[in-house]
Each structure stands twice: as C-alpha cells, then as structure tokens.
Amino acid sequence: MDRIDSVHTWDLTQGQPRLFSALECAFSYRDSLFKKPAGQGYLITAVRFRLPKQWVPVISYPDLKNDPELARNATPQKIFDAVCRIRQAKLPDPAKIGNAGSFFKNPIVPAAKQSQLKTDYPALVSYPQADGSYKLAAGWMIEQCGWKGRSLGPVGMHQRQALVLVNHGGATATDVLALADAVVASTQQKFDVTLEREPVLFD
C-alpha cells in the first residue's frame, strides 16, 4: 500500500467511474475503505502505482531476511522467486484445495496485554508496532488452540498453516462460518483475544 498512487473504480450506484487517491482509500493493515460499508458500492477496475526510479530491495519479512542467498545478492528476480517459494511451502494451492488465503487478521493489542500474554505463554509470537502496541500471530494462537489440521465438517484449518481455512469439498457458507466462529471462540477463551475475519461477507 506504500506504493499505491490511486485506485480506479466503477460506482455501482451512480453508474460512473470514480478515482480515489491513496489517502482516500484509508489503507491500513489488511484494511481499506473498500472493506467498510462506505466503500462497498465500488468495483475496483485498476490500481495505479508510484514506484521509485532507483530500485531498493525490501526484505524485512523474516523468511526473506534470513535467506542467505538474498543476504549476498538480493536481485528483483531472486526476491520474486523466494517469495513464491515461501508461499508455496506455507500455503495451499487454491487450484487444488479451495481457500481464501489467510482467514483471520493478526490482532493488535496494547503493550500491557502483550506483556501479560508473554508471561503466560513465553513462546508467544508478537511484533512491536510503531505506536507501542503489538501485533500477535493469529496462526500461532490458532495452532495453540488445537485447530491446525483439524476439520469441522467439510472445512478445516490447513495442516501446514493454521491461519488458512480450507474447503475440503462441498462446503457451504454456513459450514465456513461455523468453523470460523469455533476458532474465534477457542482463541477468545484461551487468550482473551478476539480474532477478526479478513474476508468480507456479502449477503
């Protein structure tokens, strides 16, 4: 989202195009205007990016930062290949098993809450934020609740990545929501942290 200049949309209500600046899109962690009621009447048709003329590698993601090949020589192609390799190792192929990618957002909690959880669960995975809060790894929390690789009817949490909800075949929206609600309830009970679904539900 740091590179987005503007977003082109089609206003489904007015039947005409509308251009949104990056500021108007209100981008934040896995969120934007278009995931809120005020922005759900727009169909995104194109995105305009503003890229620096001088390329600078961004490998702050832990798996990229720890890649010895990238540490020696981080070219655009090598970063692309590494990202694809990492995602293929962790995430299911949607062509083989139905999924919507990461199903829950990583919750952000105050420092006091993170400290309390770290005391209770020393292996807690968390990331400090600029404002002093902490982002918790939802996948780790879901795994601690016993949901990794576990199914509820035709849906389940993926065996390699507990954050990904998968459809083993024939699942309905009711099946998906039942599992999602069960995962949220388990995490709430164990950690006193409420997970938020990332996919938007349309009636």
Rank of each mutant, 00 (worst) to 15 (best):
M1D: 12
S6I: 02
D11T: 06
P17R: 08
L19K: 15
E24R: 08
F27G: 04
Y29C: 01
Y29H: 09
R30S: 00
S32E: 08
K35W: 03
T45N: 05
A46T: 04
V47A: 08
R48Q: 15
L51D: 01
P52C: 00
L64D: 06
D67R: 11
L70V: 02
R72N: 11
N73T: 01
N73R: 12
A74F: 07
P76D: 00
Q77M: 12
R87E: 01
A89Y: 06
P94K: 04
A95N: 11
K96E: 15
G98S: 11
G98E: 07
F104V: 09
F104D: 06
A111C: 09
K113H: 11
L117H: 07
K118P: 05
P122T: 03
A130S: 15
D131E: 04
G132W: 06
Y134T: 03
L136D: 03
L136E: 03
A137V: 08
M141F: 06
I142W: 11
R150F: 05
S151N: 15
P154L: 00
P154D: 08
G156K: 13
G156A: 14
H158Q: 01
Q161H: 12
V164R: 04
H168D: 11
G169L: 02
G170A: 00
T174W: 04
L177F: 08
A180R: 07
D181H: 13
V183M: 02
S186R: 11
T187H: 02
Q188M: 00
F191P: 02
T194R: 09
L195R: 01
E196D: 05
R197S: 01
D203G: 12
